[in-house]
Amino acid sequence: MPERKGRPNLGPAAADQNRSALVSAARRIYARHGHEVPFNTIAKEAGVGQGSLYRHFPNRIALAMAVFEENFLELEELAREHAADPRCFELVFARLVRQCVDSLGFIGIIASAGRDFPLDATIGRLAAVLTGPLDRAQREGLLRDTLTIDDLLLILRMLYGTLSHGVPGDAGPTVLAQRVLDLVGLPVRVADPPPG
């Protein structure tokens, strides 16, 4: 009997582990190839069966929502951790932009999902994360008083449009993201991802 490749089947006890492996695999695949790769490629990359993929994520939208949930939890924790820091806005928005760069394939899924994605709830949650840091930065004189949450959401849409279409001669998504922020006058520096 041929040896089974991939991770051993641990049954229901491995559900959380399988889910985490699927999200990590999807992040890698979509970062390399975009969101139009066959859905079952994610299961292969994660080393789990297709049944496990579909139990956790019946479709691409469910998978994108899981990724965004992880991203939101990270942003919310960062905002809490640095709430008293005048640079909180810069830290949170820089991380948000990094997430946009790294999760571009998932944003593409949402952009093509139309009404199947709870966009209003997502925008509301994003506004909630950014409001405190924005207010603090404005009180400290680090951001112009006229900047609003709606402006920030527009900047994010501009960022997505730029990243998804690119420009001739670009030097990569991080450079493009930084150019967008510089052009709109937002004093946020986007770091390159950590190596590895």
Rank of each mutant, 00 (worst) to 15 (best):
M1E: 09
L10Y: 10
Q17T: 13
N18C: 06
R19E: 08
L22P: 00
V23P: 00
S24F: 06
H33N: 12
H33F: 10
N40Q: 14
T41Y: 02
T41E: 04
I42E: 00
I42R: 00
A46G: 03
Q50N: 15
S52N: 13
Y54A: 04
H56T: 06
H56G: 03
P58K: 12
N59S: 12
R60T: 00
I61A: 03
A62E: 13
A62P: 02
A64E: 00
A66K: 04
F68W: 09
N71T: 10
E74D: 14
L75V: 06
L78H: 04
R80Y: 07
H82S: 03
H82E: 03
D85T: 06
P86L: 06
F89R: 00
L91S: 00
A94Q: 00
R95E: 02
Q99G: 09
C100M: 15
D102S: 15
S103E: 08
G105D: 01
I107N: 00
A113C: 10
A113N: 06
G114W: 04
R115E: 11
D116A: 13
L119M: 15
A121G: 15
T122S: 11
G124D: 14
R125H: 11
L126H: 05
A128R: 15
V129R: 04
L130K: 01
G132K: 07
P133G: 08
R139Y: 14
R144V: 12
R144D: 14
D145H: 13
D145W: 08
D145R: 14
L147Y: 03
L147M: 10
T148C: 10
I149Y: 03
D150H: 14
D151A: 11
I155Q: 03
I155D: 01
I155Y: 02
R157W: 05
Y160L: 09
G161L: 09
G161W: 08
L163K: 01
P168L: 12
G169H: 12
D170I: 10
V175R: 12
V175A: 15
L176Q: 06
L176H: 05
L181H: 00
V190Q: 01
D192H: 13
P195Q: 11
